[in-house]
Design a protein around this nucleic acid. Structure first.
Length: 489
RNA sequence: GCCAAGGUGGCAGAAUGGUUAAUGCGACGGACUGCAGAUCCGUUUCUUGGGGGUUCGAUUCCCUCCCUUGGCUCCA
């Protein structure tokens, strides 16, 4: 099987993926705390890890991909109290919306979404292991903490020295802790809070323990790949390592730690501190999901990516149109032949070097991704291939289905792995337009415009085109007659 | 204060110790079109945050300063 090399945050270098039990790959990605609808920043992380899983599977690895959902936490409780509804109603509503949004974005690679509250017994068991071994301690009131001093490796992932961290920089320090760096494993229930029974009394899990309780039970004490957004490196992922390795006695918890760069939100409309980032749901209603997915995959996954709202998506849309146009044309030609029940065997031969280059392009896309997921290089190859396809189609459109398949191959590969074409909502992929749609009216206007053009009344023709434009319909004249599509955004 | 990631053309964003520093968007010109669009061909802009060092040669390695973003126990 092809070797994949990945940047490991812990070792700070690109290393080969060596699955513990090939060809299986156990993969865990820190999911969402669904206290409110997710935004485009979340989408970047999860779309990227979707590509990771897709690519590994494409190469023949059998990936088991687990993602958690923190369906109980302070913010969820706060909101449920404000709304006077059960906490589960809040988290489940937002989580379902998240799943719908992910589906729209083509994220379909997760095998198991694990909710924290479905793993309370496992969580309790793991905390108990930690207290039994002396890593955890209880305090008055029934809270349980992890004692950092017992785990010298703490800080290895983020290269932070515990003593140089500023305690209480953002969150008030709990005076009952032995040391300010100690983190909660179990939080006792306050009034108005949901709770579960435990050996330490009624309460709920701390933030970090769910992930390791889930992975130890689902993926085992050690697994291959751990992913998440880069802001989780410290303290969350450090805490995971400390908990799991202390509880199981096995190391390392994950062979590879991957961290996706954050999406930097620009402009006051999206200020994170103001908490008014547009919900993903809304963004998806305004934009072709393929454009969104393309944008999110347009940089180096480890680096931050600038997001300036509409401006960014407009640029991405134009780029995506360029990228997708040849693919859509090839598909149209293919369906035309299929409809006519014709193999197009009388069409021109495809030059041999084109076949070679088709394969070379596929190979380069795979090569780019196999070397730490160079998404940009992969799409660059696709742009280059598009130019080649456009040139060929400019000479002739009468290729056989066999020839078209060769031209389509790099796109099919890219779609399987990067996945933006199959969620392309723009017309032109042979998707039938619903009868209730405006298409018959548009066709009527276009017919009138064709008549005007035929008699040389271009002023009238241009007026009709402009009017359709006002109504949100873009018209293009082609040798085969006028084509139209709806404006996006 | 500490840790991490960054600073490359109008914008987004790659790359390498060594020919003209990708690609996309934009802009400009040509072909095609009644015009526009799409497409094709061509052009355009950066000497890679400031300073210093190593080297025959650095954007790439080292030092230093400045700036941006993320983290420092709520966050994808």
């Amino acid at each position: 099987m092809r070797e994949v090399r990945i940047y490991d945050t812990l070792q700070e270098k690109v290393v080969p993926l060596n699955p513990l039990v090939p060809p299986r790959v156990g993969m865990f990605v820190c999911g969402l705390t669904p206290y409110k609808p997710s935004h485009i920043g979340h989408a970047r992380t999860f779309v990227f890890f979707d590509v990771v899983a897709r690519f590994l599977r494409h190469l023949g690895y059998r990936v088991f991909y687990v993602q958690n959902s923190t369906d109980i936490d302070d913010k969820i409780i706060r909101i449920s109290n404000e709304e006077k509804v059960d906490f589960f109603e809040v988290s489940e509503r937002n989580f379902r919306l998240y799943l719908l949004n992910m589906e729209a974005l083509g994220v379909r690679s997760v095998n198991l979404y694990a909710r924290t509250t479905d793993y309370i017994p496992e969580i309790v068991t793991q905390i108990r292991q930690l207290t039994d071994k002396g890593f955890g301690y209880t305090v008055e009131g029934g809270d349980v903490f992890f004692e950092i001093a017992k785990f010298p490796k703490f800080g290895a992932l983020s290269k932070q020295k515990v003593e140089s961290v500023q305690p209480g920089a953002r969150v008030e320090v709990d005076a009952r802790k032995r040391s300010p760096e100690d983190f909660a494993l179990w939080k006792s229930a306050k009034p108005q809070e949901p709770w579960w029974e435990s050996p330490w009394g009624r309460g709920r899990p701390g933030w970090h323990i769910e992930d390791t309780a889930i992975t130890v039970n689902v993926l085992g004490p050690r697994y291959d790949l751990h992913g998440g957004g880069s802001e989780l490196r410290f303290p969350h992922h450090e805490a995971e390592i400390a908990q799991a390795e202390s509880a199981t006695g096995l190391s390392p918890l994950a062979a590879l730690w991957m961290h996706a760069g954050l999406l930097n939100m620009r402009g006051e409309k999206m200020s994170k501190s103001l908490g008014n980032v547009e919900p993903l749901d809304e963004t998806l209603r305004k934009w072709n999901p393929a454009v969104l997915r393309y944008f999110l995959l347009s940089g180096l996954y480890r680096s931050p990516l600038e997001y300036a709202g509409t401006e960014s998506l407009q640029e991405a849309e134009r780029s995506f149109e360029t990228l997708a146009a040849p693919f859509r044309r090839l598909n149209e030609l293919w369906s035309d032949l299929a409809r006519a029940n014709d193999q197009g065997s009388r069409g021109p031969e495809l030059p041999k070097e084109v076949m070679t280059r088709s394969r070379a392009t596929e190979e380069r896309i795979i090569g780019a991704l196999a070397e730490d997921f160079q998404l940009r290089e992969a799409t660059r190859q696709l742009f280059g291939w598009g130019k080649e396809v456009n040139s060929l189609l400019a000479k002739s459109e009468g290729y056989s289905t066999e020839a078209l398949d060769v031209l389509l191959a790099p796109y099919e590969l890219a779609d399987q792995v990067l996945g933006f074409f199959s969620i392309d909502e723009a017309p032109g992929r042979g998707v039938p337009v619903a009868p209730s749609d405006i298409s018959s009216l548009v066709e009527l206007v276009l017919a009138a415009r064709q008549r005007a053009r035929a008699r040389g009344d271009f002023a009238e023709a241009d007026r009709l085109r402009a009017d359709l434009g006002e109504a949100g319909v873009l018209v293009e004249d082609t040798p085969k007659g006028p084509k139209w599509k709806r404006k996006e955004g």
